[in-house]
């Protein structure tokens, strides 16, 4: 464990908590893409199948449980509890264009052709593009609530910090995983446009508005 990975996990956890609280407190999922949350639930499910078979540490196991539980709780709130506030007309990204190519790629490019490894690889590839429906929805509605932009910032920063974690691990642990690194780079690049708007607008107290 190193400071970058720890801060990354904290940032990821806070993003998940921010979103949960936003929906629960405001009893509304307006502006939130249910499709992205569905993809995140798939990402955590396919990545943490070894949750009960491969104990790494209490921290690792407890964080995985929290991630999986909160992603399902978020999906449940969007599609069930507060579905009346779900803005389906703006959440129109074709997720099959994300799921199918990443599934095929995980069969072609992986570290080991075993079910668990392929599912892990699929979850890494899918996570790198899972935010697209949400970013697409924000660009379609032309703006996002400030709390939603904080959620997106925390979520984007987490994988950016993981990039530094991989540099650290390469330097000091002679360790690197090209699949995770390349997917993490793609994931971070997708946020660049949003990061720019967040830093130039939201941090100056303005509302986040994307050019529609």
């Amino acid at each position: 464990m190193n400071i970058f990975r720890f801060l990354g996990d904290i940032s990821h956890l806070s993003a998940i908590i921010i979103l949960l609280l936003k929906i629960w407190k405001s009893r509304s999922c307006a502006g939130i893409s249910g499709k992205s949350q569905l993809l995140f639930a798939i990402v955590f499910t396919t990545r943490y199948l070894d949750l009960f078979t491969n104990f790494i540490s209490f921290y690792n196991t407890s964080m995985k449980v929290v991630y999986v539980a909160s992603s399902y709780a978020t999906v449940w709130m969007i599609y069930s509890k507060f579905k009346a506030t779900y803005d389906g007309n703006h959440d129109t990204f074709r997720v099959e264009f994300l799921i199918v190519p990443t599934a095929i790629l995980s069969f072609l490019v992986n570290h080991d052709f075993t079910p668990l490894e392929i599912l892990w690889t699929f979850s890494i590839y899918l996570e790198s593009v899972a935010i697209l429906p949400q970013l697409f929805m924000v660009s379609k509605t032309g703006e996002a609530e400030t709390i939603t932009s904080h959620y997106l910032f925390a979520l984007g920063i987490y994988r950016t910090l993981y990039l530094f974690n991989w540099i650290w691990r390469y330097q000091f642990e002679e360790f690197f995983d090209l699949i995770a690194i390349v997917a993490g780079l793609v994931q971070t690049v997708l946020y660049c446009d949003f990061f720019y708007l967040y830093i130039t607008k939201v941090l100056k107290g303005k509302k986040l508005s994307l050019p529609a």
Binding site: N54, H111, E173, F175, F176
Partner: peptide, 10 residues
């Protein structure tokens, strides 16, 4: 060298 995948990471 490429190590095994980042399985100890979240």
């Amino acid at each position: 060298e490429t190590n095994t995948a980042a399985k100890d990471e979240l």
